[in-house]
């Protein structure tokens, strides 16, 4: 106890102050788990950082469908699985909300279709 303790406390105070400043300014962000409703009866469950879901999100839709996979800006992104209310399941990769790359449909009767999407264009109605 003595000078060494004093110095290390001062270093700790400076380090904590710096960390607090970085946190306040948004440079450092702490992810937190959030389970919430989007207002349409769909339940989102995942980890949130800086206003967006990060990592794997589980969505339970009002119609009974389930999504498990990453989101980017609220769209399907990365490798995920969607199970429809009719019972078929799609597992595949997504980019910006649309299937992209290898993917597979699995029907309730056991048949499966796999394919490779190269490009998707969206049409507005």
């Amino acid at each position: 106890m003595g000078k060494g303790v004093r110095t290390s406390i001062r270093v700790l105070i400076v380090a904590l102050t710096l960390l607090a400043a970085l946190y306040a300014l948004g440079v450092v962000a702490f992810p937190h788990h959030l389970a919430s409703d989007d207002g349409y009866g769909d339940r989102y469950d995942g980890v949130v950082v800086r206003g967006d879901y990060a990592g794997v999100v589980r969505i339970e839709y009002a119609d009974g469908a389930v999504w498990e996979g990453p989101l980017a800006k609220g769209r399907f992104d990365g490798k995920g699985r969607y199970r429809s209310p009719e019972g078929w399941t799609f597992t595949g990769e997504f980019r910006n909300g649309a299937a992209h790359g290898p993917g597979m449909f699995e029907l309730p009767d056991g048949t499966s279709y796999s394919f490779n999407i190269i490009e998707t264009t969206e049409r507005s109605r």
């Binding site: 959030l34 919430s36 349409y40 950082v49 206003g51 879901y53 609220g74 997504f94 299937a99």
Partner: peptide, 26 residues
């Protein structure tokens, strides 16, 4: 982050309908 910056719920209608369309294509 959850309120003022607007937590984005998107994968609701458009992405799902994309998938359903893909399913019926296949």
């Amino acid at each position: 982050s959850d309120i003022e910056s607007g937590l984005r719920y998107g994968a609701m209608s458009l992405d799902v309908s994309n998938l359903k369309g893909l399913y019926s294509d296949v």
